[in-house]
Design a protein around this nucleic acid. Structure first.
Lengths: 171, 171
DNA sequence: CGCTTCTTTCAGAAATTTGTGAAGTTAAGG
DNA sequence: CCTTAACTTCACAAATTTCTGAAAGAAGCG
């Protein structure tokens, strides 16, 4: 006889729910440690480890044992950060939240706008403190570092696209 | 007639305290937005915009209007993140906290340990969910991305060292 | 040694953040 | 249109974080 499969409500879920949950909480914990809020981290981890790579609000709420409100907040945050995509199932008011396998690429590209804001603040500082003061010079060098990193990141992401296509094929 | 300079208490500070403060709060705000705690962010910004590139605990407390306790906490955090160096003035129990102009290089290098932990969590997930499940494959690809980035960062930092030496000279 | 100066630790007050239930909004389907 | 399913917003309670004053802990200096 076959191993009993754990059925959840209706839709498909027949994987080792225990293992999934362990991964979700472990990975989310790492993200939290890196500064992400708890709920977005858990939701993201759950999506990442789902077979579809996408879940509905209800599924997320059920699996993570959180309220619809919490799902809503987490998902809004993740969408803003470009870490999930929202999809509307045609002919339904149910929404699905999806991670693409190169979602981190997206997110990291997005990080650049943050770098830009740092650069702006630094430029402002260099100007107002004077580029010939010691402090001004230090800030100018810091600024140069960010500008350098900025440029490098773009090139690096391009290399990743190539590398990825080689290893995983174009999907 | 010359613009009146704002004198602060005793030690040396005769720069435009107003401008410094504006920069400190603006830059700190950006750091906070990126996830850093408020006090560490303010302390770091203050150090970055100081002429010496270093300040004592008392100076930080005075400029930022915070208690010695707050300085202590912020500085401990920054030191852990390798974002400031602690110095002991010889023959004194006064400590100075310093940012080096390539401090971000340090900090970013440090970020790699975080990447490593993410990679560990993902490897664990791939193993426990099975590398041939859809979820497993997605996580494996995510893992590959991090490993790629990891390697690239090392190379990038090396290029920065060279670039920096060219533009700013070895200091 | 003991005084003095600086830093750290600690307990608690204050502020902020987080997650919930409940009401509100939007849009599909009869 | 009206109903109903799904998501969002809001007000509040609970938990957590943050900062402070006060006390304790080091370390130079006489």
């Amino acid at each position: 006889m076959a191993v009993e499969r754990v059925e959840r409500g209706e839709a498909g879920g027949d994987r080792d729910a225990e293992a999934v949950s362990r991964f979700v909480e472990a990975f989310a914990a790492q993200l939290v440690e890196a500064g992400m809020q708890r709920m977005p981290a858990r939701v993201f981890a759950a999506l990442l480890s789902s077979d579809e790579g996408a879940m509905t609000s209800a599924e997320l709420g059920e699996q993570l044992r959180i309220s619809p409100a919490a799902v809503s907040g987490a998902v809004r945050y993740l969408a803003q950060q470009h870490m999930v995509a929202r999809e509307r199932e045609p002919g339904s008011r149910r929404e699905r939240y999806r991670v693409h396998s190169n979602q981190w690429y997206e997110a990291m590209t997005n990080r650049e706008s943050m770098l830009k804001r740092w650069e702006d603040a630094l430029r402002e500082g260099v100007t107002s403190l004077g580029s010939r003061t010691p402090a001004g010079r230090r800030m100018a060098e810091t600024l140069a570092f960010f500008e350098f990193v900025d440029g490098e990141l773009v090139a690096m992401m391009e290399r990743w696209r190539v590398h990825r296509a080689e290893v995983f094929g174009n999907r």
